[in-house]
Design a protein around this nucleic acid. Structure first.
Lengths: 212, 212, 212, 212
DNA sequence: AATGAATGAGGATTCATTCAT
DNA sequence: TATGAATGAATCCTCATTCAT
């Protein structure tokens, strides 16, 4: 039942005007988009289905036609974000570049999309537990996959001797991505630090820490 | 603030003050303790006041006698945690040790207490937005204070030339504590890694990253 | 205003409009009617929403689908009464009759409808302060309009010399309508005095008092 | 049980400073005084016992020491007002003056005390139904007594031929006192009309209406 | 593909009152 | 004469979801 309409990942990019009483675009996309905004602003539980459909300019019936439940909307948001980030990591990780450069690029990428989709980022760790256990397991699995893929990069550097090997690769990933995922709690889009800047600093911190 | 009775958690430890024989069966203390557990398990919004008072063995009226609202209970939890961590950092940061050792000790400390109070840790970032705006501001201020105190340590190392100075101290703190605060999303108490181990690894990551 | 569905009381009289076969079993109409009865009997605060919906044979959800709040129900009652009385006064005041006859007719009318809608009358002055301030202002404005319209009649008689002019018209209206509005505190429907009788006596008192 | 402390009627006169966190005066008097103010401002049901005792600077226990219930406070207010007005009427009605002068004086008196104790006046008709049935009956009886006493004056004038007799004396009293009791809904203390002015106009209206 | 009335269970909170001290 | 912790029942309202149309 879930994910009735996959809604092309490109929609994530917000390529235009979907602010203000959203009229254009097809209904399911509009609903997810509006829900993202409201979940980020008020939290999942404090956002009523009514407020979502009102903001999307449709009725409840329409929403339940496309989604099984309120938490299905949340699931869609998670899916959208994970698809983008995983695809991105996959692309970068298999590029023909030195491992340090791939790690740097991946870090910059993940931070840039995290900030470009700041609402998704805010929602992610805050609302995971509101998801139905089954869906939660699914999300966790996808996230785990991402983690593993990144860990392989670290490992690769450790195996080749470019990185110190006296710290478990898993822990390195947890350390680094803890920092990345926490961005949404302190980063201000109107501050003096661009997403790229943060990305480069973070990559630099990681790579420095791994110097033998 | 808003509580009818401050019910300092320290009361539990019989610190001398003898107004009302505050034993561990003390109602407000029991309520906060039970709420912590339930909020961590089911989330703030999914925990009903009824379930809290049932678990604490009191009536709703009793709860509202001590706390203004459900979110006041949450505030109490935040306050308790912040007080402990700030006091700890203050103690360590002003110790007579090399700056690297103070940073290492502070990191180990914060991770150890984060894991010792795992429920508090799980609640912290997940539920902040459920707090009344005023209380949220208060918590943020206390957290900011903590951040500043730690940043001063980094700065100290940078000024003395022990640490590289080409990365903003603020960003270093955000990076490091992002990782620390994210512990609750992946750490398993029954795993093969003790709190001390994680603390030492994390401190090591940070200090390595700061090598000139 | 605040109602989801205007549910004009006139709908009950089948005035042509045929969207949703509005019969007298219409939910919002039934709710207002039942609420009127209960508010008059027990007072606004002592009437629970539960008792209203039980008496109307619907669920609470249904009530909140049509009305924003309990006090919105009260507002509807006020609106209904004011619409009727204002329309009536307007009709009589602009009739082609001597001013004394128009005043007499208006007084008889207002008393007859006050007694015909005795529950509304009982509620009116007793519960005004329970209304949300905004709604209260609205009601007050409509009531003021009524007062002004009646005052114009008095003035007319004073200007023409038919009435004594040494007493402010405003005060005359307040005096007269104070008496009218107080009916509900002493009038008994099962007494020996009909609504028409009271109306004629009251009109007579007023007109006598105004003799030059 | 009720009326534990009769609290000298003179207290009604508010002879001094019992505004601001009331400290002086004995507890029961302070409680009734504060309750009067709050009931007038927010209504009986919307005023919590807690807010009363807070405003009076005592605790709930103290209140329940002097009064049986919240509605006992209300009863006290009614009693206080009725005692004053009845005594006043009795004094004036039996004075050695022409009946018209006695009616005029009584009207001016009742309006002056109504305005001097404006809060009591506001509460009176609005909150009668909140009183326990027994107490309600008692109040009604006292009020009836007042009505009868005044009716006797009208009758006296009718019997002597000074007043027209073609309108029932009872109805005249209801008409006149309806107007008087309604004062609290429109009178403004800061307006251009003093209590005495209103009293004289009202008396004049009544006496004019009664001219044969 | 969409409406919107209706459900019904559950939620947080308030409050008059009691009672041991 | 007064305290204040505790009760427990009641209150208003919210909300995700369903379903006939």
């Amino acid at each position: 039942m879930s994910r009735a309409t996959p809604s092309d990942p490109d929609d994530t990019q917000h390529t235009g005007s979907d602010r203000t009483p959203t009229r254009s675009g097809d209904v399911p996309v509009r609903l997810v988009s509006v829900a993202t905004e409201l979940f980020a602003k008020h939290g999942f539980e404090s956002t009523s289905v009514q407020s979502i459909v009102d903001a999307a300019g449709v009725t409840k019936g329409a929403m339940y036609h496309y989604f099984d439940s309120k938490d299905d909307l949340l699931y869609e948001i998670y899916g959208r974000m994970l698809r983008v980030q995983t695809a991105q990591l996959e692309r970068v990780a298999s590029a023909d570049l030195p491992v340090t450069e791939r790690i740097r690029a991946a870090t910059v990428d993940v931070i840039e999309t995290s900030i470009a989709n700041f609402d998704d980022t805010k929602i992610f760790w805050r609302s995971m537990h509101q998801l139905h256990p089954d869906k939660q397991a699914q999300v966790r699995a996808e996230r785990r996959y991402y983690h593993e893929r990144f860990r392989a990069l670290i490992q690769e550097g450790q195996d080749s001797g470019e990185f110190r090997a006296d710290v478990p690769a898993d822990l390195v990933v947890d350390y680094h991505f803890g920092a990345v995922h926490h961005l949404s709690t302190w980063y201000r889009k109107d501050g003096w630090l661009g997403a790229g800047d943060v990305g480069r600093y973070f990559a630099d911190m990681l790579l420095s820490a791994l110097r033998p």
